[in-house]
Amino acid sequence: MLSASLILLASPSWAQEGNLATIEIIDIEHRSPSEIRNQLTPLLHERGYMGQIDNKLIIATTAANLDILQQRIETLDVPPRRLIVSVDFDYREPGTAAVTDSIDENTETAVTPDPAPERVQAVEGEVLTFRSASPVDDAVEVPETDPDAEPGDVGSNIQPQLLMTAEIVEQQAHISVALENIDGFSGQHTLQIPLGQWFVMNPDAEGQPILALQVDVLP
């Protein structure tokens, strides 16, 4: 973090607090300046000002408040970290018995186990796509007469899909999620979840698979 500062004469209101008014120009090297600015705004002095030019933040505030903001910037403006992201389209809580490979004695039919969670390594901010291995129960087939059907669409089932990006802020994963083909739950969602813990997105689902995701940081 590179910075240059200019000490100005204190305004009367700030002088009463025993602080000089200070202008600081801070280069943001690794992260989005606008996102860091949003994180700093709640900490800015009520009479302070914060602007942005390219990758620089221009901050006018008291010296004491500037110290607080600079400490916060040091925790936010870090190189992107590598993550482990897991998505389970049919989540079972830990300790719940899952179906295993077996033969049904009554029908002599093989029982297929639940698919394992999808797990990938990624970098903060990278767009990830996950697709369920199983189509939705009420999957719709594209009619052969549909003039808008794409090659390969005819007779194919619709699969639940999840697109997401994740960034780490302190000990939480800040996640933006777009869900498709999930009955009653498709659309955009913004989440803040603890690291290393499964988060169930649709806990109130009735008769539908439970969707859960997990984010952790690689050491």
Score class of each variant (00 low, 15 high):
L66R: 00
D67L: 11
Q70Y: 00
Q70A: 01
Q71V: 03
I73R: 00
I73T: 01
E74A: 14
T75A: 13
T75Y: 05
T75K: 15
L76K: 00
L76V: 02
D77C: 03
V78W: 04
P80T: 09
R81K: 15
R82N: 14
R82M: 11
I84M: 11
I84L: 13
S86Y: 02
S86V: 06
S86N: 05
F89H: 05
D90A: 15
D90I: 11
D90Q: 14
Y91A: 05
Y91K: 08
R92C: 09
R92V: 08
P94I: 10
G95L: 07
T96N: 09
A97M: 13
D101Y: 09
D101T: 11
S102Y: 02
S102A: 14
S102M: 05
N106E: 12
E108G: 07
E108P: 01
T109A: 06
A110I: 12
V111S: 05
P113D: 03
P113A: 08
D114L: 14
P115D: 08
R119Q: 15
V120A: 03
V120T: 10
Q121D: 08
Q121L: 09
E124F: 02
G125I: 05
G125D: 04
V127R: 13
V127H: 10
V127G: 06
T129W: 04
F130R: 02
F130L: 04
R131L: 10
R131V: 11
S132T: 04
S132R: 05
S132D: 11
S134F: 10
A139P: 03
V140I: 15
V140N: 10
V142Y: 06
D146F: 09
P147S: 05
A149K: 15
A149N: 06
G152Y: 06
D153H: 10
V154C: 04
G155Y: 07
G155T: 09
S156M: 13
S156N: 12
S156D: 11
N157A: 15
P160I: 05
Q161C: 09
Q161I: 08
M164I: 03
M164K: 02
T165D: 03
T165P: 01
A166Q: 00
A166S: 08
I168C: 02
E170N: 12
Q171N: 15
H174L: 14
S176W: 06
V177P: 00
